[in-house]
Simulated assay, not measured.
Amino acid sequence: MSPITDSHTADAERIARVKQALLSMQRYSWEQGVAAQALLESGDTELAFLLARDAVNRQDTSGKLGVMNDGYSVTDSAANGEAVARAAQATGDPLFIKGAASMLDWLLHHAPKTEEGILRHVIDKPQVWIDSFYMAPPFLAISGHFDEAVKQIDGYRKLLWNPEAKLFAHIYDDEAQSFIREAHWGVGNGWAAAGMIRVIASLPDSLPEERGRIANYLQQSIDGSLAHLREDGLFHDVMDDPSTFVETNAAQMVSYSIYRGVLLGVLDKDYIQFADRMRAAVHARVDENGLVQGSCAAPFFDRPGTAPESQAFFLLMESAASQYRETEGDAS
């Protein structure tokens, strides 16, 4: 085989191992949701719909999907929303239709919010987390609630963006009007970038101002992150704190966001060199079992190790990179 074929074969084998490891690891609602999203974007629709079915089977009485013992979260379960909604559209199965509608009803009418209407992250605490960028607004957008999706993105940015650092903080207490955790967590900034990309992709042409505004947020976030990219193509766990451990998942989250941003026409192609560099660095950290090592580790996210969301974002990054290569090939 040619070197190119060898490379593509090796990539395919690595992707298969990463997917297998992901399916063995995903447990909680957000893990199941990001796994299902990764399968959707990778074209593995049948498996994504199986995860969606299980998310509906574990839907609690509030409408939150895929709940185990993480019912304390306001937005995490909405990470399953797109897979369930796509399954409803594709199959017409009342199970999926009701499941998506109940999840949407929770977010719109029952979930705790700030006085400005921004979704909190924890039911019994007045906290806004950066994680919610990815969990709720994309589902709101693909469900046709574009104004609400944009409102949430605007609200999260207002509360969490540090204009001096050009990075997002992690957790804000809405009642105390202060940060619980002001650190610029790498994976958190990855959640924000990836969430914004998915909302941009869903906004209609009739909302050019909103699309442009979120695209501007995205570019600022990417630029702020890349300012802290290490020579090895990775970031520290807290992006602007080199005393924290070197972490893997943020790099593939930012890489994914760049590939999709260029494909959507909201980022310049000059960013691809950084996406490629981060992607290569991540590939070097996948072990023989398909585990993406050195990630901010589940379940406590306080050390390097492995995590289902990191497995999923490897698949998301690979899908986006493949789509970009195909587009470039078609253009040539």
Rank of each mutant, 00 (worst) to 15 (best):
319 S>D: 10
203 L>C: 02
168 F>C: 15
156 Y>V: 01
222 I>V: 13
311 Q>E: 08
5 T>A: 13
86 R>P: 00
291 L>Y: 08
316 L>F: 10
38 A>E: 11
28 Y>H: 14
307 A>V: 01
75 T>Q: 04
119 L>A: 08
45 T>V: 11
268 D>L: 05
185 W>Y: 13
67 V>E: 09
110 H>N: 11
120 R>C: 11
247 E>D: 14
280 A>Q: 11
59 Q>P: 06
162 N>M: 07
71 G>N: 12
96 F>Y: 10
153 I>Y: 02
240 D>K: 13
35 A>Y: 13
122 V>Y: 14
4 I>H: 08
291 L>V: 08
318 E>V: 02
120 R>W: 08
233 G>Y: 04
69 N>S: 13
285 R>K: 15
139 F>Y: 10
189 N>Y: 14
306 T>F: 09
103 M>E: 15
57 N>L: 12
274 F>L: 02
297 A>V: 06
139 F>I: 06
68 M>K: 15
183 A>T: 12
185 W>D: 14
38 A>Y: 09
3 P>V: 00
286 V>H: 07
197 I>M: 04
141 A>T: 06
103 M>A: 14
179 F>Y: 15
200 I>H: 01
47 L>R: 13
263 L>F: 01
60 D>W: 08
207 L>A: 12
234 L>G: 07
226 L>V: 06
278 M>T: 07
29 S>Y: 07
57 N>G: 15
267 L>N: 03
13 E>C: 11
332 S>H: 11
18 V>C: 11
58 R>I: 00
219 Q>G: 14
44 D>C: 09
119 L>I: 04
223 D>L: 02
5 T>E: 15
246 V>M: 09
109 H>D: 10
25 M>E: 10
200 I>P: 00
285 R>N: 12
133 F>H: 10
283 H>L: 11
80 N>M: 10
24 S>I: 00
206 S>D: 12
12 A>N: 07
